[in-house]
Design a protein around this nucleic acid. Structure first.
Lengths: 188, 188
DNA sequence: CTTAAAAAAGGACAATTGTCCCAACTCAAA
DNA sequence: TTTGAGTTGGGACAATTGTCCTTTTTTAAG
């Protein structure tokens, strides 16, 4: 549930030495918003270290968490292809280091570096393939089943993520999450 | 809610004339399964005409519809990058014509045809960006709101899709869908 | 034309989840 | 050290959605 892409990060570590002018390293502190929904950006980011959440917020201020992003995950890249405004917000959960690269230089790498191109294609394929089973499972099974499953995937998520974030990730209310946790305790 | 990609289809129409040996045209009839979950394939498809559904099924046989795919949408392409088994099934809703191309030749085009490469990147970016707001909306709003929204996006979806498919797309039961439709009728 | 199967519609009840509260606790800022 | 905001936990009730079942209508096959 916290996505990573070590291969991409490793390659970008290398690239950033070959092209030190392409990649700017930035640091964000916990709770800082790195990217804001419905704004226009000319750069995108790849996470060097730390954890962020990627979420959409609706008119009522409710936020729906799409993914938790860790090492090697990129964000803000979709806008290179669509030309649209950012469609989600990204907020640092822990302190976070990122590589920042402009749309233009990213495009240039995509066009001239076949290895980079392939890694990006693969990372996008993974993103697509990952969402489907998750939402499918979330819709088809009970909240308790979902918690059990998340424990299998990432045993100590409760230490890293707040209850509120977990609830928003699951698309349920905090109340429902608490209720399910109590039930699970009883069941042991 | 029925996804299309006209630019990609147009370009592939052209490509298939330049490389008639790359693209095989196949026809499937309504209700035929074109691609089956958890099987290995060495080819992928792009829809020339018609509508398909892309769905995951769980142990209990329930199916969760991810997308309805129309003209210019590709499927089976994720497995080129992941090397995994197909993670969803594709079934023809109407009669469907598709281009079929092998993984190898697809990869070759990706590597040697920059226009094609860019179109695929863009199509993947669109797929990623499309799912998030949809699931967010589905989780945050009532079934009735979701039906109203689907009507705005695609006014006559009830003529094209079965109630069962619509319910599976929304991640709800047929009973709940019917109830919501009755309520909407009353509200007019 | 007949018949079987699938699709559509809905009643009755149970289970799940949300809403609206309030209370306890933590932690950082003043 | 106090204040207040944010997090956590849970009671009580309402609303939503699911399950199970039956009936009618439509569609496709023989």
């Amino acid at each position: 549930m916290i996505r990573t892409d070590v291969n991409l990060l490793t390659y970008i570590d290398t690239l950033s030495q070959k092209h030190p002018d392409y990649f700017l390293v930035e640091r964000y502190h916990s709770k800082e918003v790195i990217l804001e929904q419905d704004k226009r950006y000319q750069s995108l980011y790849i996470i060097k270290s730390g954890i962020t959440k990627c979420y959409l917020s609706d008119e009522n201020g409710k936020e729906f968490i799409q993914e938790f992003l860790g090492k090697g995950m990129e964000f803000g890249e979709l806008e290179v292809f669509s030309g649209n405004l950012s469609f989600c917000s990204i907020e640092a959960i822990s302190d976070v280091d990122v590589y920042k690269i402009s749309h233009n230089q990213y495009t240039e790498l995509l066009e001239n570096d076949p290895v980079f191109n392939r890694l990006i294609l693969k990372s996008m394929a993974t993103k697509i393939g990952y969402k489907a089973p998750r939402h499918s499972f979330q819709q088809s099974y009970s909240i308790e089943d979902n918690i059990i499953r998340m424990h299998q995937i990432f045993p100590n998520f409760e230490q890293v993520l707040s209850k509120k974030d977990i609830a928003n990730y699951m698309g349920i209310t905090l109340r429902s999450l608490n209720r399910a946790l109590v039930q699970l305790e009883k069941g042991k």
